[in-house]
Each structure stands twice: as C-alpha cells, then as structure tokens.
Design a protein around this nucleic acid. Sequence first.
DNA 1: GTAACGTTCACGTGGCGTCACTGTGC
DNA 2: GGCACAGTGACGCCACGTGAACGTTA
Lengths: 137, 137
Amino acid sequence: MTPRLGADTGLVQIGVMAERTGLSPRTVRYWEELGLLQPSTRTSGGFRLYGQEQEDRLRILKTMKPLGFTLDEMRDLIELLDEAAVSKPASRRALVLRERVNGMRHEIALRRAALLDQVEATTHISKALDAAVGSLS
Amino acid sequence: MTPRLGADTGLVQIGVMAERTGLSPRTVRYWEELGLLQPSTRTSGGFRLYGQEQEDRLRILKTMKPLGFTLDEMRDLIELLDEAAVSKPASRRALVLRERVNGMRHEIALRRAALLDQVEATTHISKALDAAVGSLS
DNA sequence: GTAACGTTCACGTGGCGTCACTGTGC
DNA sequence: GGCACAGTGACGCCACGTGAACGTTA
C-alpha cells in the first residue's frame, strides 16, 4: 500500500541522486540547509525524494561552484531566475529583476575575465617549467 | 654604525615588500611559515629584510595561487625549481627532477583545461540569464 | 534484518585577520 | 626618546564541508 518509488513517479532518494550528480548525500543535505534546493517531496517516513528538476539544479550548482561563487551567491542567483520565470513582463517587479540580472551578468563577465587571466598565467608557469627542464638537459 | 637599509643594499622590511606585492605582512609571514620563502636576511634586532629575489618570488606565488594550487603544492613547485636550478645536467638527480617537472606540467595542463571549462560555463550561465531577461521584456 | 535515511552537533581545514603584548629603529 | 613599525603567539573566522552518534524507515 505504500506508494512505490519506481518508474511511475521518477522520484529517487538522496543516495541515488547523490550518485547521479557526483555529490555526497551529506553535501546535498547541506545545500538544502543553505536554501539552494528542496526535495520535490518526502516519503511519509521523511525520506527526501528528488526528481529531474532537482537533478538539473544540482548539476547547475555543481558547474557554477568552481567559478568562485559562494553558495550564498548561488542561492541568490537561483532565486532570481526562479522569480524571473514567474514574474509578469513589464511589471514593476520585472524592472527590478532585470536590473539585478544585469548586475549578475556584469559579475559573471568579471569572473570570466579573471579566468582568462588565469589561463594566461598557466602558460607563464609552463614556460618557467620549460626553462627549468631545459637547464637539466 | 648600524648598517643602513637604504639604497646601497636594496633591502626592505616586510611592510614595504607587502605594499609592493599587494600582500599583507601577515600573509608574507604566513607563507614563510609554510616554507614558501625566506627573507634574504634579518636585522640584528630580528626584522625581516627582503630583496628583489623575494619580490619576484612573491609575485609568482601571488599569480599561481588563484590557479587552485594549495600553498603546500606551491612550496613543492618552488623547491623543485630551486633544485633544478642548481642540479647538474645529466646527473641521476636531474633525471628524477625532470620526471617531477613533467608531472607538474601535466598537472598544470589539467588545471588549464579545467579553467577553460569554467570559461565555457560562464557562457552557459550568461545564456541562462539572457533567457531570464528575455522573458521579462 | 540490514542498508539507507533522518537529525543534531561537533569538528576539521585552508588561509589568513586580529588582538595583545613586547621589541626595534629612524 | 617618541612613534611607527616589526616580532611572536594565540585565538577567531569564514566557507565548505565531514564525521559521529543515535534513532527511524524501506
């Protein structure tokens, strides 16, 4: 009588979701605690259940994290996108959101530039290593 | 009678060096504690004195840090380069060092690839933001 | 019955910042 | 001799987790 979790719902428990996304269950719970995602529902016994939407979100988060955003910033961004998705165009709210999204884009452009600088730096270091190897040959 | 620190020696105290390199004195001392650099000498009273060589090293370290290396890894790299600089070519030691340098280069290539992936990721996120803004207009 | 899940709390780590107090030096 | 700067040592902090303990669920 307990509803099965199988193919019908497409929902999985935290362990499966963790495995799929390459995160630890512990980390998923931690991110939830910070407000980055909610399980789509829970079993009557309290087990978290996740669907495709959550998996997508986890992958996005996992991708964004190494860009140097803090988890709090990522939560803000996600809230922003969620809100934008349901906000009426041309509303006053939409104006504010557009403003904030532009701010984010600027921020991201800065990170991007920083990343490119760092790529540059790797070539410098490689050259230093080449020089070191050169003196050994 | 106390030796002057002025133009003759070119040596400066930690505060000046910190300012020059954009690091805090605390950071410079901390890096020393981890073995990343030594002051070229000290005053009789114990003040650290730094020269051009240390400044160069600090700049290199500062550049490398955002590439995702830990300070310990950076210390290893520096030791490696120092040793390579004084090691006889064609010695057995040189062989080992060349090996390790190659390992490092591989590691750096991996970081570089990761950085480029991250640059890619910024464009994806930007697109997501574009879409969000688009739905608001 | 056992593996996975739940919560809560504490601890660890890297990389410094920040006292607090003492010593140096121009 | 005054005042900024330097020294050491210890503690604090932040972000990001990772156990450990102990009970519940599938």
